[in-house]
Design a protein around this nucleic acid. Structure first.
Lengths: 86, 86
DNA sequence: TCGCCTATTTATAAGAT
DNA sequence: TATCTTATAAATAGGCG
């Protein structure tokens, strides 16, 4: 009933929307969990295909986390890109 | 072996770090998956307790996603806060 | 610290409603 | 379209090295 996912865009719009809705709720739950359990200050911004904004911020306003990012010296800003972990 | 998680900060520093490391890799994998499967443009910025930056961006530079957020009219920027889904 | 193992919990795709 | 069900897949806490 739950086959492995194929890592490519879901072309069927209905399936894509259902999958987005389910995955979004899990993703934001996990984001919330790690922020509390591990005391992580984080911000997540997501634009759905229709352009709708979904955002999450652990503690402060999302603008404050963005500012913390912007205020980093460039060497620290670019050093840790999580794509290497995916 | 895998008890339910208690939704509060893990005070033991070693356990906290191990949990962070495990959850971070899953979180960024899920973030990557939803961005590909559902064609979502997103940015995730996370500061670990030690202040280290971890970031992920789906397609463009993280600054571009931030700019897209900043460019939203205020009513759209504040309407969809995902905390309601957690 | 860091990876591997395993039992249990959680996520999720598809189907049902 | 959205929510519920269910069977399978994936995540993960703790143990061990």
């Amino acid at each position: 009933m739950c086959p492995k996912v194929d890592m490519k865009k879901i072309e069927n719009p209905t399936k894509c929307q259902v999958s987005f809705s389910k995955r979004r709720s899990s993703l934001f739950r996990k984001t919330h969990e790690i922020s509390v359990l591990c005391d992580v200050d984080l911000a997540l911004i997501a634009f759905s295909p229709s352009g709708r904004l979904n955002k999450f911020c652990s503690q402060k306003r999302i603008e404050d986390v963005m500012q913390r990012y912007i205020d980093l010296p460039p060497d620290k800003r670019f050093r840790y890109d999580i794509k290497r972990l995916v």
